[in-house]
Simulated scan of single mutants.
Amino acid sequence: MREQVVTVGHERPLVGIFCEPSSADMTDSRTAVILLNSGVIHRVGSCRLTVTLARAIAQTSGLSTFRFDFSGIGDSEARRGTLTAEQAAVEEVQEVMDHLSSWKQYDRFILYGLCSGAFAAYRTALEDPRVSATVQLDGYCYMTPKSYLLHYSRRLSSPGRWIKFLLRKLGLFKIKRGAELSGIDEQFFEVPDFASYPPKEDVAKGLEQLNLRNLQMLYVFMGNEHYKYETQFLDCFSSVPFKDNLKIIHQPLASHILSEPADRQTVVEAIAAWVKSTSRKLESHQAPRELDSPVSHGP
């Protein structure tokens, strides 16, 4: 396995780390995995999750990976423009895909992201057919009747919660949330913000398009206040006729940023194994690349 710093673009380039298996270990020369920032966290990821995952995929799955910083984050300088942050993220992922296609002739990409990185992966997949698979940690999902029932029934039936409620009202107890619990500076802490999600109907329509395209999807949901049971995603988007292109993993005891080493290892191993099997599936379902066909170098 070999790692090197790679810059993408000439003016104010995006900076990332390209991780490539040895030629003997490489299993798929057409597919690369791109790992996206979560919030404003540097490309190493929370608790070095992105570094660990990128290397695990290269070692166990035989695929090259590229972890990079969006503009204005980490080592990538800010860029001026009129695009929103969401639009710029999609454009920059496509810029990275163009670069990797031209440099290493990859024509299939698997996008990975946690929280806002997952949302960027989803939006890019909608815009670009070169995205063959996505790995989304705590991606878009909404409450269902069952999740509401589980959410409130557990609270109403818990004596401890009633005691804490009374202590809070008396000013004797303060709840610690998010950044306070994680030890991460608040400006770098990101949690799912359901209030800012797009309408559920819009996401369902997007998933229908991706499903028709047979996009391979892995969703991993950790323990949080909104995702309550393993099949909540399927219940939430019951109108989408998923087949064998969707896998869901629920880790109800794991934190959003996978702060515990054991949880992190479990999720990393599961993702690496899924990426490996998905790469084989993509290879078996697509025709060989024509030797005389020109490789797209982007616009």
Rank of each mutant, 00 (worst) to 15 (best):
R213G: 11
A32H: 01
G298K: 00
L166M: 09
I257S: 13
Y152S: 07
N214D: 06
N224S: 03
Q232L: 01
S284I: 08
D98P: 00
C19F: 04
F68I: 01
P252S: 07
V51G: 07
S22G: 15
S22I: 05
S239P: 04
I175L: 10
R289A: 05
K169A: 07
H226P: 02
Q286A: 08
S238F: 08
A287Y: 07
L150Y: 15
K281N: 06
V8N: 03
L253D: 15
T84P: 13
P252I: 01
C19K: 06
H285C: 10
H99C: 02
V135W: 01
P261A: 04
L166N: 09
Q59W: 12
R43P: 01
D128Y: 12
R280H: 11
F189I: 04
H297Q: 09
D263T: 00
A195I: 07
V44Y: 05
T231Q: 15
D75T: 01
T134P: 11
E260Y: 13
F189E: 14
G178F: 00
T65D: 08
N245V: 12
Y106V: 03
N224W: 02
L14G: 12
L49E: 11
D28N: 07
V295L: 03
S116M: 00
G74V: 10
E86W: 08
L149E: 11
M97S: 00
C115I: 06
K176M: 11
S238V: 02
A125R: 10
I257H: 14
S239Q: 15
E20C: 08
R130A: 02
P13Y: 13
R213L: 04
V191N: 11
M26Q: 12
Q87P: 06
S182V: 06
I110W: 02
Y152W: 13
G62K: 08
R161K: 15
K247P: 03
E283L: 15
S259E: 10
T52L: 09
V275E: 06
Y148R: 14
V191G: 12
P252Y: 05
F173S: 14
P199H: 13
G223L: 00
L212G: 15
I41S: 02
P129I: 02
R2W: 04
R161V: 05
T231I: 01
I41P: 02
F165P: 11
K176R: 15
Q4F: 06
L166F: 14
V8L: 03
L218K: 12
C19T: 15
F221Y: 15
N224H: 03
K146N: 13
G183R: 05
A125F: 06
L181W: 11
T52D: 12
S296D: 15
L150T: 00
R48Y: 04
V267T: 11
K146Y: 14
V33M: 15
R213K: 14
G9Y: 13
R130P: 03
